[in-house]
Amino acid sequence: MLKLDINGASYDVDVEDDTPLLWVLRDTVNLKGTKFGCGIAACGACTVHLDGAPVRSCSYPVADAVGAKITTIEGIGGDKLSAVQQAWIEEQVPQCGYCQSGMIMAVSALLAENPAPSDDDIAESITNICRCGTYPRIKKAIKRAAQLQGGD
């Protein structure tokens, strides 16, 4: 039995140690906002935070997440929407929406570390795939979220 701290709540899960965190979140804990996209950490749809740092959970063994504070899309805003989520609505970012949980988690981690990222910072750090092509709006929404958060 592994003990996980997810969005501030404690969970005991009975799974193989090498089970990717993604599938524990989705199938064991039933938090389905985190998505499966590629299974090899290539697309970022499964991005969550471990102690605030972005992790591609499809390729992260659950045993390694024990002891860390795990944050998912369900927990990123607390009771209300986070600045990033708000910016995502204001810029009307999502199309199909499937990759956006991972995008929002990746961007939230970037802004926590770098409150006013440059275009180059954004291009370098946000490598998630969006098949619908929402990147132009993602770029705008990151700038807007930075403003909402009080960055530049």
């Binding site: 906002g33 499966f36 609505i89 009307q92 929406g97």
Partner: peptide, 27 residues
């Protein structure tokens, strides 16, 4: 107009096919 399907796509509550949960379901 603001898209009606966007709010649920930013808070993780949108239900796609992979998210379907049915009583007694196997995988």
């Amino acid at each position: 107009q603001m898209r009606v399907d966007i709010p649920e796509k930013v808070d993780g509550t949108a239900v796609f096919g992979v998210d379907v949960e049915v009583e007694g379901m196997a995988h």
